[in-house]
């Protein structure tokens, strides 16, 4: 069973970074969109310090949305999903492995580039690692909730819009706590209460997302 879960994790990680895989696009979007912020809001350091952390969170959430459309659709179309269902391992665990692979594939690099982006937004140097760590945890919440929406919309052509409508409301809790933690980190250092709530929402979505997604996927096959 562990072997099957690890195999799905490894394969999705390889697919994400292979040519035509989905991992580079959200990363490019994140860097590109945040780089445009000083051009739209002006270079005033005080303005940037205020709007910087929330905008980093917003672009990270939208970047996560980008990869969800093809996450299960590709497996449904090429027949891979049939094989996952025939595994002795429960579909919930295999779906969780897919989510974990996506998190590593885009969450890791995104958190890394978030540090220089946060510095560019006038986040104090001591708070930049905290901002990146928060985004890493927040992406786990986004992907957990996103798994469910992606599974529901897997059979829909151009399902991206549907996924956005389904999933964005669930992005609210991690965004609220994440942006609050980032803003306070810039002002007064680590805020354990906001950060704890962020971690709690991430755990909640990461645990429930695969279960809901597996149930939705079973419906698509029949």
């Amino acid at each position: 069973m562990i072997r099957a879960v690890l195999a799905v994790f490894r394969r999705d990680l390889a697919l994400a970074w292979a040519a035509g895989g989905g991992a580079a696009a959200p990363l490019g979007f994140f860097v590109g969109a945040t780089a445009l912020v000083p051009l739209t809001a002006g270079p005033d350091p005080q303005t940037l310090a205020v709007i910087g952390p929330p905008l980093l969170w917003l672009t990270a959430a939208l970047a996560a949305l980008m990869v969800l459309e093809r996450l299960f659709q590709a497996d449904l179309e090429d027949g891979s999903l049939d094989q996952l269902l025939l595994s002795p391992a429960p579909l919930e665990l295999l779906v969780a492995a897919k989510g974990a692979a996506l998190w590593v594939a885009i969450g890791g690099p995104l958190a890394l580039v978030a540090m220089p982006m946060a510095l560019a937004m006038q986040t104090p140097p001591h708070a930049a690692p905290l901002a990146a760590l928060g985004l890493l945890v927040g992406l786990a919440a986004f992907i957990g909730a996103g798994l469910f929406g992606a599974a529901l919309a897997a059979g829909v052509r151009r399902g991206g819009v549907l996924i956005a409508i389904l999933v964005l409301p669930f992005f609210a809790p991690p965004i609220i706590f994440g942006a609050a933690a980032a803003s306070r980190a810039a002002a007064e250092g680590l805020s354990t209460d906001a950060f704890s709530f962020l971690c709690a929402t991430a755990l909640f979505f990461a645990a429930l997302g695969p279960i809901g997604a597996a149930a939705a996927l079973r419906q698509h096959l029949s």
């Binding site: 195999a7 799905v8 390889a14 697919l15 292979a18 090429d78 027949g79 891979s80 295999l94």
Partner: peptide
């Protein structure tokens, strides 16, 4: 539908099926 991934080689497919299906 053969259940293949365009970017993965033949050996990777066989290993994946052996792992996932047992």
């Amino acid at each position: 539908r053969d259940g293949l991934k365009a970017t993965l080689d033949a050996r990777a497919h066989v290993r994946f099926w052996a792992d996932v299906l047992g």
